[in-house]
C-alpha cells in the first residue's frame, strides 16, 4: 500500500487546487456568458465537479474517507437538481416557447 501513497503524492496538492479553481472559474464565467438555460445548468454541473475534484484530492492526500462520502452526497444532490431543473426547462419551453434565461425575469413580482 505504501507505493500507492507515494504515487498519489507525486502530484502536489496545490496543482489539484489550481485545476479545480480554473474549472470553477470557467463554470462561473460560462453561467454569465450564455443565455441558454440548459447550458447554464451544464455550467453549474461543471462547478459541482470542480468542488468534487477538490474534495477528493484533499481526502486522498489526507487519508480520510469522509471527503469522498461528501462527494457521493454532492453527486446525489446534483442528480436531483438536474431532474427538477430540466423539468423546469421543458415547462418553460412549453409556456413561453424559448429557453432564453432572460425570459425568466417575468417571474419577478
Amino acid at each position: 500500500m505504501n507505493d500507492i501513497v507515494t504515487a498519489i503524492r507525486t502530484v502536489p496538492l496545490e496543482h489539484y487546487v489550481m485545476l479545480s479553481f480554473v474549472l470553477f472559474s470557467i463554470g462561473m464565467a460560462g453561467a454569465m456568458f450564455r443565455r441558454n438555460t440548459i447550458i447554464v445548468l451544464m455550467c453549474l454541473e461543471l462547478m459541482f465537479n470542480s468542488v468534487n475534484l477538490l474534495l477528493t484530492a484533499f481526502s486522498a492526500h489526507h487519508g480520510d474517507p469522509g471527503g469522498q462520502v461528501f462527494v457521493f452526497f454532492i453527486m446525489l444532490v446534483a442528480a436531483a437538481e438536474v431532474t427538477v431543473g430540466l423539468a423546469i426547462v421543458v415547462m418553460m419551453k412549453r409556456n413561453v416557447d424559448s429557453v432564453d434565461i432572460n425570459q425568466l425575469n417575468r417571474m419577478r413580482g
Partner: peptide, 18 residues
C-alpha cells in the same frame, strides 16, 4: 483524475451517474 487519486469507488460512480 479520480483514478489517479486512488478513489476507485468515486470514479465508477462518477461515470455511471454523470
Amino acid at each position: 483524475h479520480y483514478i489517479l487519486l486512488n478513489a476507485q469507488f468515486l470514479a465508477v460512480v462518477h461515470v455511471i451517474v454523470y
